[in-house]
Design a protein around this nucleic acid. Structure first.
Lengths: 227, 227
DNA sequence: GATGTTGTTTATCGCCTGATCACCAACTAT
DNA sequence: ATAGTTGGTGATCAGGCGATAAACAACATC
């Protein structure tokens, strides 16, 4: 019906390089999918981007490919290589290191965008979540356990036991879920992240020390676990 | 094309009462939606039930109404009135009560079905999750705090402070997320729920006691919090 | 055994979805 | 100016969706 009439009037917007434009699409698609879930329509997405729907297919072969790129940016973005060093820097008190780490880490992942994408992906059963959990165990929790052992004067046998890891997970999840309650469920929470983290660390460090002082070490379950 | 030919051969299945049949539909729909998410199609659902799709609309006015019933069964199912009494029964050691409670509670909610529905609903932003979180705070966490205070010889002023609640949340979430890792992400975990709970409780109780012994009570933030 | 009621199916409607194609518009190089 | 390449659009397709209507099957009652 309508003829293709030049849509002059928004040519003000200067052209970006192809790569930049693509990146912009991915970034805004991330925002979009974090709200609508991955079942959000390509038409709605295109409208949000201010373009028409078929154009998406010039930049991404399929919706699924676009989604994969969204995952990549979300999951790779957060990890700061400096964190491992921070956690293991024994010239500083452990509590201080943990405080600083969890402040920084939660600054990155405590956002509606990140947390929602994380759970949407998780519910889809994608490997990427399992991979991420593995990274958290290796790069964060294992180090924390190592430092706690050191602090408690215990032998630093190579890898942490499975039950030690689970204890570190309780700390990690306890803090993590504060963000979930706040940004996903939008439930009322104590609006002082720092205090929540500090209290969690106080409880954990005091409790961990005491539990491990009494621990019957050699008998603990070795690290291999089952799904 | 095809004429309505009698589909004899499975009339063995005796007729249930309308209410029972309805309940059966809801139960199996719960299972279905927990796997596929609430965007799962009514045709697939009907196939799973062994009936045709329009039949669903004889039992439920719309897909949304069916989903609402799914929520209701999932969210109301778990709460056992006895738990409040269990938690506050001071004739037994606190640690023992907490152990028993968390064993029982996680027996109910640690299932792929329950956890997935919980997060699908949460991501949709439904009030029901906020309501559930409120119930957990009132019926569980507030009691736990009260008992911990008692145990520590502290005054049992009516309601817990917001920061005390957050500490209890760290324990609750720490245990909860063990189930999330296992049943949603299907990540390898220590396959001994009892030990995970026991360790979490040991760390919490020891840590809590110590933190509260040193607490500057009157200065703590009062209970009202912000979203 | 005819009658009314309830359970179930076939066929279909209108809408929305991801994807494709042919075409136009804009910038670049010659 | 002209040809070529890239950015973007309108129209459209096949398939899936939730929902509805009309007909048929099975049972209960008299």
């Amino acid at each position: 019906m309508k003829k293709a009439v030049p849509k002059r009037a928004r040519t003000k917007q200067k052209r970006l390089s192809p790569d930049d434009r693509r990146r912009e699409f991915v970034a805004r698609a991330t925002e979009f999918f974090s709200e609508e879930g991955f079942d959000g329509g390509t038409r709605d997405l295109a409208r949000r981007l201010g373009v028409t729907q078929p154009l998406l297919y010039r930049y991404f072969p399929s919706k699924d490919d676009l989604i994969k790129e969204v995952y990549r940016t979300v999951y790779l973005e957060p990890f700061d290589a400096g964190w491992e060093e921070l956690l293991t820097d024994r010239s500083r008190p452990l509590r201080e290191r943990l405080q600083e780490f969890y402040q920084a880490y939660t600054d990155v992942i405590f956002s509606r965008r990140w947390l929602r994408i994380y759970f949407y992906a998780g519910l889809k059963g994608l490997d990427i979540n399992r991979w991420y959990i593995g990274v958290v165990e290796d790069k964060i929790l294992a180090r924390i356990i190592g430092e706690c052992r050191y602090e408690a004067g215990l032998p630093e046998q190579g890898k942490p036991t499975a039950s030690e890891l689970e204890m570190a997970w309780v700390l990690q999840s306890g803090i993590f879920y504060y963000g979930v309650r706040k940004y996903i469920f939008e439930s009322p929470v104590l609006d002082d992240k720092k205090q929540v983290i500090d209290d969690a660390l106080d409880v954990f460090l005091a409790g961990f020390k005491q539990v491990f002082a009494a621990a019957d070490y050699p008998q603990r379950v070795p690290v291999k676990a089952v799904g």
